[in-house]
Simulated assay, not measured.
Amino acid sequence: MSLWVLFTLAAAALQTIRFMLQKQLTGAGLSTGGATFSRFLFAAPIACGLAVAGLVSTGTGLPVPGAGFWGWVALGGLCQIVATFLTVALFSMRNFAVGVAFTKTETVQVAAFSALILGEAVSPLGWAAIVTGLAGVLMLSKAPEPGAPVFGRATLYGTLAGGLFGLSAIGYRGATLALEPLPFLLRALLALGAATVLQTAAMGAWLSWREPGEIARVLARWRKTVLVGLTGSLGSLGWFAAFSLQNAAHVRALGQVEIVFTLIAAALVFGERLHLREAAGIALVIASVVAIVLGFG
């Protein structure tokens, strides 16, 4: 099995754990922005420490990347922040389920962006796997509440979030490619460190302006928030390493297995039962994963 497949599966599993931890933070007196900020605040020093360790262990001097690298990092980091806020905003809407379903179009959008921006086209087999996985994820999405409109602000937010998540993946892929010919893992570590520092600074400025005092509350709860940062940084390292080795469209398509991990965690941790529709959706996602691994792994 290829390294990018292992990195992607590990990233999806760690991201599931991070979301579970982050969900608990909103009940610990933190706002949505504070809970999101904690993921970057404590991930940044961990990511930077790993990058320094990578440079030292390989005997590589600190590179001086060009403007292209920083442009890709800014694209990836800022798009990820805005997409996350849009996704969180969906939960305050009556028809949030429809919006969340539209965020899952990320895999299709990232494939299109990959071809248009990076010139990395997806093969017919890749498209078939992506569409199969998307169908499975949509089956796993909750149905909208009775009377809730299918089209409206939630649909707009969801589609935009999916597109921004797709652009974020393209930005991170571009950042790792801009650091060639360094070893793939070192490229991933350096790009991750740069992205998390940028995101911490951007979100810190936003919270200082819009939510005075929230940064202090995040710091006061460091015993809980540091776990979010640790799992977030390790999960992101998995994504960045995979992006440095493989087309972003294939990585994100394989990463859809995360929703299967989430359902398994919900069943084991919270005792939730799976329904027939969910089982069918899981089967489609797994079929997509198998096709990607066999076709591109």
Rank of each mutant, 00 (worst) to 15 (best):
Q199F: 12
Q246L: 03
A266W: 00
T58F: 06
N247Y: 08
G271C: 10
A43Q: 02
Q256I: 02
V82S: 11
E278H: 14
T132W: 05
L21R: 03
G49M: 10
V251L: 01
P149N: 04
F184T: 15
L138C: 11
F270R: 05
F165V: 12
H275Y: 12
T107P: 05
A121S: 13
L186P: 02
R153M: 13
V82C: 15
Q246S: 11
G166P: 00
S92M: 10
W4K: 05
A175H: 10
E106W: 09
M93D: 05
S31I: 03
L160Q: 10
T103G: 02
F113W: 06
T60L: 04
S288C: 12
E180D: 06
F69G: 12
N95M: 08
A51I: 01
A188D: 02
Q24A: 11
S233G: 08
N247G: 14
V56S: 09
A51C: 10
V290S: 01
A283V: 12
G27A: 03
A178D: 11
W206C: 15
W72S: 05
G232R: 01
G255Y: 05
P146S: 05
Q256D: 09
A13M: 13
G77P: 05
L192P: 02
L21H: 01
S244Q: 10
G204S: 01
L55E: 04
V98P: 06
I46Q: 08
W70P: 07
L234C: 01
S208E: 06
A12R: 00
A253L: 04
L207T: 13
G136P: 01
V108I: 12
L21Q: 04
A253F: 03
A89G: 08
R39M: 05
G166R: 07
M203D: 06
T262Y: 07
A83Y: 00
P124G: 03
C48S: 12
M203H: 04
W222S: 15
L3Q: 14
G27L: 08
F261C: 08
G66C: 04
L276T: 15
R277W: 06
V197C: 09
V251P: 07
E272S: 15
I259Y: 06
S2P: 07
V218H: 01
E278G: 12
